[in-house]
C-alpha cells in the first residue's frame, strides 16, 4: 500500500480549505434570510449572478495559467468572495455593477497575484471600493425598508429591475439613503442625533432592518468562532476598537454622531468583523498581529464614517490594514521557546 506522503508526518487532521469555506457560507445563511426578509429577494439574484461569473472567471484564468482546475475551483474561495460582495452591494444593484465588481475582484485582486493565498488585498473589498468610487450613485441607492414592508417586492419584478432597469410594481421612489448615510447628511445639517432618530429609516437602535441583519451576522460569526473556522482575535479587537473610540467621542461630543451601539449594529460592521477582516489570506497571521489588525480596522472604520467622505468605512479600513499586514507580521513575532530575550 503506497504511502501518501514523501516524508513524515504520515498522519493528517481533517481540516480542509473547502470545509472552512463551506462553514463560512453556512454561517452567512441566517443573515441572507434577514436581508431577503427586509430588502426582498433581489439579493439572491445578485448572489447567484456573482457566483456564476466568479466561477467562470476563475475557470478561464486557471486554464490560462494551465493550473489543475478541480482543486482550485472546489476550494470555494471564489464563491465566498462572490457571496460577500453580493451581500455588501445594494440589493437592487444593476447586473453590470455586480459583474464588473466580481470580475475585477477575481482577475485583478486575486489571480494577478497568483491566485488563492497570494493576494495581499481582500478581493471582495477591492471590488466594493472600486464600485463605490466609480459608480457612487448606484452604490448608494438602497430601497427604503419602510415602504417595502407595505408592498413587498416579488422575485419577478426584482429580476425585471436588475436586468433592465424599470420597476413594474407600484413602488415609486427607489432611491433612499442607508441609515449611516442619513445620519451623516443630517449631522452635516447640524441636526442633533436624538432628533434624527425619529426619521422612518431608523428602527429601535440602528437602521430599521439593518440592526437585524447585523445581529444575524453576529450569530453567524459566533457559529464560526465555535467551529474554530476563525480565531476570536480579529472580530473582538475590531468591535472593541470601534466601540471604545465611538464611546470616547460620544462622551466628548455627542452631537457628532450616533451612539456606539448604533455604530456596532449598522452598516457593514458585523459583516466586516466576522467575515471580511478575518479572511486568513489577507489578514495578519500572528496572534498579536491579529489584535493590532482588528483594532486598526475598527478605528479606521469609525474615523472614515464620522470624519471621512464616505458613509461606511469598513471596506476602506480593511484595505488599508491589508496594506500594513506585512509590516505587522514582521513586528509581532511571538516569543519562541527558550528565547533568551526577544
Amino acid at each position: 500500500m503506497p504511502l501518501s506522503r514523501l516524508s513524515s508526518p504520515f498522519l493528517a487532521g481533517t481540516n480542509r480549505v473547502t470545509l472552512q469555506m463551506l462553514q463560512l457560507l453556512a454561517a452567512l445563511i441566517p443573515a441572507i434570510i434577514a436581508i431577503v426578509y427586509f430588502f426582498g429577494p433581489s439579493v439572491l439574484i445578485t448572489m447567484t449572478l456573482a457566483v456564476v461569473v466568479a466561477l467562470l472567471a476563475e475557470a478561464i484564468l486557471l486554464r490560462l495559467r494551465n493550473r489543475p482546475l478541480k482543486p482550485f475551483l472546489t476550494d470555494g474561495s471564489a464563491v465566498v468572495t462572490a457571496v460577500l460582495l453580493a451581500i455588501a452591494l445594494p440589493p437592487l444593484a444593476p447586473w453590470w455593477l455586480t459583474v464588473t465588481g466580481i470580475l475585477f475582484a477575481i482577475i485583478f485582486a486575486k489571480h494577478l497575484y497568483g491566485g488563492l493565498g497570494y493576494n495581499p488585498f481582500n478581493p471582495a473589498m477591492v471590488a466594493y471600493v472600486l464600485l463605490l468610487i466609480s459608480f457612487p450613485l448606484e452604490m448608494t441607492t438602497w430601497l427604503p425598508v419602510a415602504n417595502l414592508s407595505e408592498h413587498p417586492l416579488d422575485i419577478s419584478s426584482a429580476f425585471q429591475f436588475i436586468f433592465n432597469g424599470q420597476l413594474t410594481s407600484s413602488i415609486d421612489t427607489v432611491s433612499g439613503a442607508t441609515p449611516l448615510d442619513a445620519m451623516k447628511t443630517q449631522i452635516g445639517l447640524h441636526q442633533i442625533p436624538a432628533y434624527i432618530f425619529q426619521q422612518p429609516v431608523f428602527g429601535l437602535w440602528g437602521g430599521k432592518g439593518w440592526e437585524w441583519i447585523n445581529l444575524w451576522l453576529a450569530v453567524g460569526g459566533v457559529f464560526l468562532l465555535y467551529r474554530r473556522v476563525i480565531s476570536w482575535h480579529i472580530p473582538v479587537a475590531m468591535l472593541i476598537g470601534l466601540s471604545t473610540i465611538s464611546l470616547v467621542t460620544w462622551l466628548i461630543a455627542p452631537e457628532l454622531t450616533g451612539s456606539p451601539l448604533f455604530h456596532l449594529i449598522s452598516g457593514g460592521t458585523m459583516l466586516g468583523a466576522f467575515f471580511i477582516a478575518t479572511d486568513p489570506v489577507t489578514a495578519s497571521t500572528t496572534v498579536k498581529g491579529k489584535i493590532v489588525f482588528g483594532a486598526g480596522v475598527g478605528l479606521l472604520t469609525y474615523i472614515i464614517r464620522v470624519w471621512g467622505g464616505y458613509p461606511d468605512g469598513v471596506a476602506f479600513a480593511v484595505l488599508i490594514m491589508n496594506m500594513l499586514v506585512p509590516l505587522i507580521d514582521y513586528y509581532t513575532q511571538p516569543k519562541v521557546y527558550g528565547a533568551v530575550k526577544r
Binding site: 472552512q20 482543486p71 474561495s77 497568483g114 488563492l116 493565498g117 489570506v281 489578514a283 497571521t285 491579529k290
Partner: peptide
Amino acid sequence: LPCIRCGE
C-alpha cells in the same frame, strides 16, 4: 493547495 496563512 497554496498556503492561505490561516495560522493553524
